[in-house]
Design a binder for these strands. Structure first.
Lengths: 104, 104
DNA sequence: TTGACATGCAACCATTTGGTTGCCTATTAT
DNA sequence: ATAATAGGCAACCAAATGGTTGCATGTCAA
């Protein structure tokens, strides 16, 4: 879980996920195109994404194809985001109440 | 957006959000209780959470009360998580196809 | 009014992070 | 066979991160 959050914390990595979401199964070189970063830097990001299970890579000949694995993102949505959405209205109204109390 | 992801990337900060989710409006000292960290470290985490707008603090006399703001978490759920959930099945089936192709 | 309590500020430190460069290996195409 | 292509490995670097300690400030209670 922590690895997933950490992996998502970097904008470059999120953009890599975006690219894979737009077109799945891209090679390393394809993922490097147009980025202001060396291939090695992209490799490091992809390793982190793989370790977080957000990306699965398949070596095919001399190319390495990268596939998005949406499961961990889904899990974060399920186990984390929704938990906080439940108490949402209550939390907001209490916050509002306190902010008003401050101005008395 | 980036600040929110970065703020969520640390387990201590997520646990602070959890504590506020359990009981909203806690003071700094209350939030420090039972944590293996100095008060100053907790302060730093809270600053980061405030900058990401995940927490709003209200000074009340000599105490500072901290309130959870669930809006940014909700936005991440809306704008980011759901986007990846949409293509989920398609992505998974293509991944499966490729993994099988590898074993031929 | 004075001491205790709640928090703030700043300097410092070790480790992690995001990136680089240089070189090596494996596969494909000519 | 050999050159070009795709990727991997390792050492290095600067900056960011997560934490500490020491001291200062503001507020409440006796």
């Amino acid at each position: 879980m922590d690895e997933v959050f950490k992996a998502l914390a970097d904008a470059s990595r999120r953009s890599l996920l975006d690219r894979l979401h737009a077109r799945n199964g891209q090679t390393l070189n394809e993922l490097c195109e147009g980025l202001a970063m060396t291939r090695q830097a992209v490799t490091k990001h992809l390793v982190i994404l793989e370790e977080a299970n957000l990306v699965t890579a398949v070596r095919q000949g001399r190319e390495k194809l990268h596939y998005l694995n949406p499961v961990p993102i889904h899990q974060i949505g399920e186990r984390w985001i929704r938990k906080f959405e439940r108490g949402k209205l209550a939390a907001l109204s209490e916050l509002k109440r306190q902010l008003e109390k401050r101005d008395e």
